Amino acid sequence: MSNCYLTPSQIKLRRKNISIMVILIVLIFITFIISMNTGVIKLTPLDIFWTLLGQGDAQQQVILFEFRLPRIVIAVFVGMGLAISGAILQGVSKNALADPGILGINAGAGLAVMLYVSFFPITKAAPVYLLPVLAFIGAGLTAVIIYTLSYRRHEGITPMRLILTGVAVAAGISSAMIVLTLRLSPENYQFVATWLAGSIWGSNWLFVFSLLPWLVILLPFVFVKATVLNVLNLGELTAVGLGASIEKERRWLLVAAVGLAGASVSVSGGIGFVGLIAPHLARQLVGAKHQFLLPTAALLGGFLVLMADTVGRSIFEPSEIPTGIVVAVIGAPYFLYLLARLKE
């Protein structure tokens, strides 16, 4: 929309929202630089600059290009994917507590990935590219189960029933995963334990390229559907009155949410609460219009996961804390706070 069709207050609000997104981009860039220098072997900003230009020594190039950069990029991508997935789920369900981790979608994706990696080695490109597809299938089946169990013929789906069903399904899937771990070798068990804690385990360029197509396709699709999410938030009767095909739009948006969550989980493990925190903070910063809420949530999600991964790698060097645990330290109290407000 051209600025000539906007009121002065709308122009002011738009500039404020754009400024917030620019600030978030700057924060991501700063954290990006700090993360490149985080590890047992330190790289100064000057070392990083010359290495990026191809002037670093062999060790610096291996550390930066083969280990740190892929992991940093994956952290940002995963944060964006989980945040947008959460924003879609909250918008479609009109449920303030909707999140792919809380609803059990991440657990379903994780079960599919765990079953695969438990029996097949992740050593070649083809299996790596297959992981997001398997995660999407697992997440999709879980979403169908949760939707079916939550639905009541005359009531539809209530927010609280959806949350409780998701938590119950996630608990059941987690129990199944624990039982499966009893059959694993010590090496695979260590991997699964790390994965369950939410570690950025797919830290090479193959995993970046396996995740990238899902983001390139699904994120623009969701951004185009921002107006649809705005209409859905007005209520079903109003949405139908405005000409929206409720069920069709809802199904496509849910498919996008499941795809983003599943693909992200396939390379990051069980990182929760990102899809809960990022959309809520974005809503407080830029308001409820999804044209601004979605990109802001994506930036907040990328920043949150990257910051959590950087803190987890640096706080107890040379050991590291899984990213999911760092996020949970922030997310669990925030979830309880939102739950208390919902009850009120």
Rank of each mutant, 00 (worst) to 15 (best):
E187C: 02
L13Y: 08
E344V: 13
I88A: 01
S35A: 15
P333E: 03
Y147V: 05
L212D: 07
E236Y: 05
G198K: 05
L162I: 07
G259Q: 06
L64P: 13
L232F: 04
V144H: 02
G79N: 05
A298T: 04
I20R: 07
G138Y: 07
Q61C: 06
R251L: 13
Q284A: 09
I102N: 01
R152T: 11
P213Y: 13
V73E: 01
A170V: 01
V192R: 00
L141D: 01
R250Q: 10
L338H: 09
V255R: 02
G301R: 05
A244P: 03
V274S: 07
G56C: 13
W252Q: 12
F273L: 08
G275K: 01
I315L: 15
P45V: 06
F209D: 10
L24F: 11
I84G: 02
I178P: 03
T310R: 12
G79H: 01
W205E: 11
D99W: 09
V76C: 12
F292K: 03
S85N: 12
I41Y: 14
I277N: 06
I18C: 08
V169L: 03
L103E: 07
A193M: 07
G262R: 04
L162T: 01
T296S: 12
L103I: 11
M21F: 01
F65S: 04
L27M: 15
L281M: 14
S150G: 09
M114L: 15
R153A: 11
Y129P: 04
G56H: 09
A297L: 07
F223Q: 06
T123N: 14
V208Y: 11
L111K: 00
T310P: 04
E344K: 15
V267D: 10
C4F: 14
Y147A: 08
S35Y: 02
I246K: 03
S150F: 08
E236R: 08
A278Q: 02
Y189K: 07
M307L: 15
L89F: 12
K289V: 11
W201F: 15
F120W: 13
I325S: 11
I88C: 03
S85F: 11
M80C: 15
G202R: 00
A107V: 10
H154D: 14
L219T: 14
I88T: 01
T194Y: 08
L260S: 09
